[in-house]
Design a protein around this nucleic acid. Sequence first.
DNA 1: CGAATTTGACCTGCGC
DNA 2: GCGCAGGTCAAATTCG
Length: 298
Amino acid sequence: MDDGDGDGDGSSPTDSGAAASAGLLPLFRRSPVEDLEEKLRWATEENERLTRALDAILAGHHAHHRALAAAPSATTRAPSVSTSCAARDDAPATATVSTAGPSRQPPTAEPRPKVRTVRVRADATDADANNLAEIVKDGYQWRKYGQKVTRDNPYPRAYFRCAFAPSCPVKKKVQRCVEDRSMLVATYEGEHNHALSTQTTEFVGSGCTSQHAGSSLPCSISINSSGHTVTLDLTNQGSGSSVEAVSRELVTVSPEFRRLLVEEVVQVLKNDAEFVEALTNAVAARVVDKIPHGPVDF
DNA sequence: CGAATTTGACCTGCGC
DNA sequence: GCGCAGGTCAAATTCG
């Protein structure tokens, strides 16, 4: 999370942006400042595109996942924002996300603050109530402002506010599930009204939002020496990053959900002409870089 | 020493 | 109106 100069090795998509704007082959190098500005612009735009795509994907998957959960095969529990575990028993390690109106309100559409519930399986060793916010990582920084033992749950409920922007109305409640102690239930209320904290992404009920037009990119592209494979390195953000949190979330979701999510991400990216073009340019730029300078004789 | 967390007190909404 | 429960405040405490 430092300077995040992941493009230092010339393998990031930002190079492709520069290369693309330079006409694929970087024959005419611009000044370093212009180059960096162009990279930043490209990264920001790409970030926004990916954010929208992921939002769309996850919005669709939340509905799909709810449909799966409502399947008659499993004992369906009443949908609730309460702390009872609504996770399906046939999924040993799951993180489920649901969106609902305020618990006491009928499910009619209204401009009330969104309430989203995220269930995360946590290690039994993370039993302390103090680090609930840490366990349910979402990329934002939270400040605890209260704790309460509720009537229907012996485990204390912790109340958090978004600590990044004082005016941010988002609140978060985290409580251990009464039925399954290893399950944490995080309830988010409201929408963030600021760009982002020092962390870069959020994984909450509405899906992944990622951004950060700042120094570091959400991913990097690396190409092996043969040039045959392309790796989207989403872990290139240092420990404790929200990308890591997203990865952790994805690890805990059911395999079925994960598979569908990956398929849909691939599909969206394949259909994104700009992404494909950028990727192609990145590969081309990388290949060009690998070609020894000077006269080339084949 | 400043920031973050804890925790008891207080406030508010709801049901009876 | 009263009591209960959830949510918030703010002083005290802890931590880095």
